[in-house]
């Protein structure tokens, strides 16, 4: 749906006042839930997402267990109050698909073969949605998995890039996502320089695609540092409660 809504003004500022390559305000928190084995929370612009990780634990139903590695199960869910119009609480086609792509984005980072015949459950609850929830969910889920002590090759970091008013922009918000011309979520393991998720919706020329991917890498670098900072500060704080060190 094309509209006359102007998403980028004459001075090159976007609808929320950001520059083309600027991220939304971002905040991570690790270990927000006591009963989960690992947990994390992300606020990215208007997105508010909580992630809980349970496991490795026994698989139920039993026949789903893999004899050679752990089973990774993700459940992405949007709260009924997460969007303007009440969302039906039943998981829809979109939520099931996003659960799947998030799982496949996280899987390459995990050393699942260390826990055969077990399951690792990742529950993602979107409390407030403002575009780019799948990317925010991936970044937060990686932190929750690390917090649960599950061995990983690297953290996974994700961001969306897109085409708005013919320009390539970083970290789309809800309006840009809806009225822009293209949307491309990218997830990476930054230290390994490996892409684990690449989706694309809309039309990009080859040059635009290359530009978008470079922009995504740049954004991911910034988010990665924030992720590491959040993890490190939680565990350093925990160590400080000991007198002995």
């Amino acid at each position: 749906m094309k509209s006359k809504l102007k998403l980028i003004d004459e001075s090159g500022r976007r609808i929320d006042g950001r520059l083309l390559d600027e991220l939304r305000p971002l905040r991570f928190e690790v270990g927000i839930l006591k009963n989960a084995d690992g947990s994390a929370y992300i606020e990215q612009g208007g997105n508010k997402i909580a992630v809980a990780v349970y496991g490795p634990r026994e698989v139920h139903p039993r026949h789903q267990a893999r004899p050679d590695r752990a089973l990774l199960r993700t459940k992405y869910r949007m709260a009924t109050f997460s969007v303007k119009d009440r969302k039906s609480p039943t998981p829809g086609r979109r939520e099931i698909e996003i659960s799947k792509v998030i799982r496949e984005a996280l899987e390459p980072a995990l050393l699942l073969e260390k826990f055969p015949r077990t399951a690792i459950d990742v529950f993602i609850e979107v409390l407030q949605a403002d575009g780019g929830t799948r990317c925010a969910s991936i970044s937060a889920a990686a932190l929750a998995l690390a917090d649960a002590g599950i061995p990983m090759r690297d953290l996974v970091t994700a961001v969306a890039v897109g085409k708005v008013d013919g320009r390539i922009v970083l970290d789309l918000n809800h309006l840009e996502d809806q009225y822009g011309e293209g949307d491309m979520p990218v997830a990476m393991m930054p230290s390994l320089n490996a892409i684990t998720l690449l989706q694309c919706d809309g039309t990009f020329t080859l040059e635009e695609f290359k530009e978008a991917l470079e922009l995504a890498k740049k954004g991911i670098g910034v988010i990665y540092e924030k992720q590491r900072e959040a993890l490190r500060s939680k565990y350093l704080d925990a160590l400080k409660t000991y007198r002995v060190i």
Binding site: A146, P151, M152, R153, L155, M189, L239, K240, Y242, I245
Partner: peptide
């Protein structure tokens, strides 16, 4: 292992080159 001074503590994270 617990004789490390607090200022000297270095935490590594998943994916970090040790």
């Amino acid at each position: 292992m617990i004789k490390v001074k607090r200022e000297k503590i270095k935490i590594v994270l998943p994916g970090e080159v040790v």
